[in-house]
């Protein structure tokens, strides 16, 4: 009987290992085992990187709006209007303005001190966060036109509604 040479034994063992590793991979796939965390992290980072131009564009616009739309301009808009117009203006200006919500609180406090109604100030600080003309292009690209349009319409209506409800409730409570 012929004995197999060392080279052929190595080849058989090597082929066996490859077959075994393929089997393991298939079993892992079938059992739904988790992939390596590094691969998942890489995938998330790549997905984020793909969105980088979109996010950088929004950041660029936010910077531009913060310089062009000054607090002085915003405060000047609220002089001598009816409550409804003030609330509407509060919602609109809040959605045009951009930046940290702290700024909206400070501006809102300033508006209150200047005699602007609480309806308008509440609408202003609410729409500052939930609505944003500056981020609309990014929202449109990520979530689609239908979702963006209806979410913003709902948000606009509810901002005014909540502003009115909050002020009325506070009036009743006091």
């Amino acid at each position: 009987m012929n004995e197999p040479d060392s080279c052929s034994i190595f080849t058989h063992r090597h082929q066996g290992k490859i077959i075994q590793s393929h089997k393991e991979k298939n079993q892992r796939k079938q059992s739904g085992q988790r992939p390596a965390f590094r691969a998942v992290l890489q995938k998330s980072a790549l997905a984020f990187l793909a969105m980088a131009p979109l996010l950088l564009g929004v950041i660029g616009l936010v910077g531009l709006f913060q310089v062009i739309v000054t607090p002085k301009m915003l405060t000047a808009l609220f002089r001598g209007n009816s409550l409804l117009v003030d609330t509407l203006l509060g919602t609109l200006t809040g959605s045009i303005a951009a930046g940290n919500p702290i700024v909206s609180y400070l501006l809102g406090g300033e508006l209150l001190d200047n005699g602007i109604s609480l309806y308008a100030v509440t609408a202003f600080i609410l729409s500052w966060v939930t609505l944003g003309f500056v981020q609309l292009p990014a929202e449109l690209e990520v979530f689609g036109g239908k979702f963006t349009l209806y979410r913003n319409i709902l948000s606009f209506i509810f901002t005014m509604f909540i502003a009115v409800l909050t002020t009325l409730t506070l009036q009743v409570l006091s």
Partner: peptide, 8 residues
């Protein structure tokens, strides 16, 4: 693929 290239 990068998204929002034209917007940027």
């Amino acid at each position: 693929a990068f998204r929002g290239k034209y917007f940027f």
